[in-house]
Every structure is written in C-alpha cells, then in structure tokens.
Simulated scan of single mutants.
Amino acid sequence: MRCPNCSSKNLGKIGVNHYYCWSCYIELALSNGVYSLNQVEEDGSLTTLDDLFDETERQAEM
C-alpha cells in the first residue's frame, strides 16, 4: 500500500481501516476501496484533502 499524496510506503496503522503517512504527515481512512485524506492540524483537528485529488487518485491499490 502506498500513500496517494507522496507515494511513500511508510504508513502506520492507527485503527481499523485508518492509516498515517509518516513521510507527509496525513491521515488516511479507507472506505469501499477509496481513501479519504486528512491533514492533522497543530490543535489535533483534521482538515480534509479530498478536494485536492480526484477519486481515481484516491483508489486503493489492491
């Protein structure tokens, strides 16, 4: 599995179908084969990055 943002394989699992990229510091949630990407802000809140990628770029590689 690779990060759709930076193509790194340096992902850690933080929950069921939730991952964290240690290279570009984003959180990924996998649902129905499509990633939802979020940036973790300094206060711990999440900001969606889904609008920066089309759905084909967010498809999970199986």
Results as ranks from 00 to 15, higher is better:
Met1Arg: 03
Met1Asn: 02
Arg2Glu: 10
Arg2Gly: 00
Arg2Cys: 01
Pro4Ala: 09
Pro4Thr: 11
Pro4Leu: 10
Pro4Trp: 13
Asn5Trp: 01
Cys6Gln: 04
Cys6Ile: 03
Asn10Met: 10
Asn10His: 14
Asn10Cys: 07
Asn10Leu: 12
Asn10Asp: 15
Asn10Trp: 12
Leu11His: 03
Gly12Glu: 10
Gly12Asn: 08
Gly12Val: 07
Lys13Gly: 01
Lys13Thr: 05
Lys13Ala: 01
Lys13Pro: 00
Lys13Gln: 07
Lys13Glu: 02
Gly15Ile: 03
Gly15Gln: 08
Val16Cys: 01
Asn17Pro: 00
Asn17Gln: 14
Asn17Thr: 06
Asn17Ile: 02
Asn17Phe: 09
Asn17Cys: 04
His18Tyr: 07
His18Asn: 10
His18Glu: 14
Tyr19Ser: 00
Tyr20Trp: 05
Tyr20Ser: 01
Cys21Tyr: 06
Cys21Phe: 04
Cys21Gln: 06
Cys21His: 04
Trp22Val: 04
Trp22Cys: 06
Trp22Thr: 09
Ser23Leu: 09
Ser23Lys: 15
Cys24Ser: 11
Cys24Gly: 08
Cys24Thr: 12
Cys24Lys: 14
Ile26Arg: 15
Glu27Arg: 15
Glu27Phe: 03
Glu27Gln: 15
Glu27Pro: 01
Leu28Ile: 07
Leu28Trp: 05
Leu28Tyr: 00
Leu28Val: 03
Ala29Leu: 09
Ala29Gln: 14
Leu30Cys: 09
Ser31Tyr: 12
Asn32Lys: 15
Asn32Trp: 06
Asn32Cys: 07
Gly33Met: 04
Gly33Asp: 07
Val34Thr: 09
Val34Asn: 02
Val34Ile: 15
Val34Tyr: 05
Tyr35Ile: 09
Tyr35Arg: 10
Tyr35Gly: 07
Tyr35Gln: 10
Ser36Met: 09
Ser36Gln: 14
Leu37Trp: 01
Leu37Tyr: 00
Leu37Asp: 02
Asn38Tyr: 15
Asn38His: 12
Asn38Gln: 07
Asn38Ala: 08
Gln39Gly: 00
Gln39Thr: 06
Val40Asn: 01
Val40Gln: 01
Val40Pro: 00
Asp43Val: 08
Ser45Cys: 07
Ser45Asn: 13
Leu46Trp: 00
Leu46Thr: 03
Thr47Cys: 05
Thr48Asp: 13
Leu49Ala: 02
Leu49Tyr: 05
Leu49Val: 01
Leu49Asp: 01
Leu49Asn: 02
Leu49Thr: 00
Asp50Met: 12
Asp50Trp: 10
Asp51Val: 08
Asp51Phe: 13
Asp51Gln: 11
Asp51Gly: 05
Asp51Met: 06
Leu52Asp: 11
Asp54Phe: 06
Glu55Pro: 00
Thr56Leu: 11
Thr56Asn: 13
Thr56His: 13
Thr56Asp: 15
Thr56Arg: 14
Thr56Tyr: 12
Glu57Phe: 07
Glu57Asp: 10
Glu57Tyr: 07
Arg58Thr: 05
Arg58Val: 05
Arg58Ser: 04
Arg58Asn: 06
Arg58Met: 07
Gln59Glu: 12
Ala60Pro: 01
Glu61Asn: 11
Glu61Tyr: 10
Glu61Gln: 09
Glu61Lys: 12
Met62Cys: 03
Met62Trp: 13
Met62Thr: 08
Met62Tyr: 12
Met62Asp: 10
Met62Glu: 13
